[in-house]
Amino acid sequence: MDQDRRAQWLRGVLDLCVLGLLARGDSYGYELAQSLQSAGLGVIQGGTLYPVLLRLQRSGLVTVYWREGGGGPARKYYQVSPAGRTVLAEASGQWSAFAGGVGAILQERTAP
């Protein structure tokens, strides 16, 4: 995949994807990166992911807490907030419409 275009797409949807993953359960940074990768978004570097998490935290869409790791230092866990769930619900509908439109255009063959 063209890395520049991928980066542009990610810029638009990464925060929503993170919210979507958190809606299924609280998680921490590295685990989220793993989940994003296995979902098919490719490798998400820490330098990209954590600023997004900070922004979500700043705008109140997620809350944070620290949990003692087993045998290791504490980890910062993220939890989607009610406001986050609202945003996620709205965005899901909007994304379906948007992606559908894009898909339709891209699937069209040149008219005979």
Partner: peptide, 23 residues
Amino acid sequence: GHVVAEAAAHLRDSGEPPLRAFG
């Protein structure tokens, strides 16, 4: 302090070199 701690945890979990993971 939190940012640094989180980055440290990430590096430990992932085992990646810092320059690749964070720049």
